[in-house]
Computed example of a mutant assay.
Amino acid sequence: MKLSGNTIFITGGASGIGRGLAEALHQRGNKVIVGGRRRGYLDEVVAANPGMAAVEFDITDPASIERVAAQLIADYPDLNVLINNAGVMQPDNAGGHVDDALLVSTVETNLMGPIRMTSALIDHLKTRDNAVVAYTSSVLAFVPLALTAVYSSTKAALHSYVLSQRFMLRDTAVRVLEIAPPWVRTDLMNSREAEQAMPLDAFIEETMAVLGTDADEILVESAKPFRANPGPGEHGFVDEFNKGAVELFGR
């Protein structure tokens, strides 16, 4: 991906990985617009990064997505990069009752939202040079965390969608990228102080280096063993990973 001279919209860009990517790309000479539901967080990011812009919208609401897509095309006709980063992660219980509100919210935010957002902008992106659609998935797309089974499932589904969309857009100028983070110190699952998680600044630095290459999958080194795991013998890795997670989180 070209790392400068773009006009970029990042969903979920007001905190965590989204904000980290937004600020790194802003510093490299891109016009960055961050989107999210929390006006206060958006205002904070814009205030800290003069020249950045923000739009408030709800990734779970199709009408809100259509409205913000039309606004972006009108206000930023040079828009050529979409980074679908918005996501929610909550613990659930795949071995028992799964709360329906959690299920619907997670699927709408993590899977339906990115698909709808891209759908609303894809025809415009096809007209732009150096166009990119990127999705923030997770290493949990490849090695599910049983304590967050719904979240892991949405990321696996998103990975599958990325593969299909990349194929369908193979004869266009639009590149489709997947960013698959490991455990990173963000607000997801209260991980900001987790010693075992990768520091956010280190993740952003390594991710930006890979993003600037021709790679379709953006993986930091610690994510690669997870990406390499799926296959006939995947269960052993998955089971050992989850045994460690249960010990860590006490469930």
Rank of each mutant, 00 (worst) to 15 (best):
A180P: 07
I33K: 10
P232R: 02
A54F: 04
A180C: 09
H97K: 13
F226H: 10
P144K: 08
A146I: 08
F237D: 10
L72N: 12
A120C: 06
R116P: 11
G231F: 02
M117W: 07
N130S: 13
A22H: 05
Q90V: 13
G29L: 11
P232G: 06
M1V: 14
Y151T: 01
K243T: 14
P77D: 11
G96K: 12
F142M: 09
L121S: 12
S64I: 10
N80D: 12
I115D: 04
S64E: 12
Y41N: 09
Y135I: 02
D43R: 10
Y151H: 08
R39A: 15
L21E: 01
V55I: 12
T207M: 09
T109S: 03
V246W: 11
L169Q: 06
T148D: 03
A63F: 00
A47Y: 04
F203R: 02
D214W: 10
L102T: 09
E240H: 12
V55H: 14
N110Q: 08
D171R: 09
P225N: 05
H235A: 15
N30A: 11
I83Q: 05
P182E: 06
V55L: 15
L111P: 01
Q165A: 06
R38A: 09
A180F: 01
R185C: 02
R251L: 09
S160Q: 10
D75V: 11
G96I: 08
L21Y: 13
R67L: 09
G95Q: 15
Q71G: 06
Y41W: 04
G233Q: 10
V174K: 07
T148L: 01
S64K: 10
G12D: 03
R128E: 14
V143Q: 02
L188Q: 09
D100K: 05
S105P: 04
S152H: 07
I17E: 01
A202R: 09
Q71Y: 13
L145P: 00
V162H: 07
G233R: 06
R116A: 13
A194I: 00
G13I: 02
Q27P: 06
T60I: 02
R37F: 05
N6H: 03
P182Y: 11
M198V: 07
Q90I: 11
V46G: 03
I218G: 06
N85R: 11
A180S: 14
R19Y: 05
F9C: 02
A146N: 08
N110E: 11
A86Y: 01
A202Y: 05
A209L: 12
A69T: 08
E221K: 11
M208C: 04
A86T: 03
D43G: 12
S15G: 00
N130P: 00
G231T: 05
A146R: 05
K126W: 06
V133M: 04
P225E: 00
T60S: 08
I73V: 15
G231E: 10
I65N: 10
R19W: 07
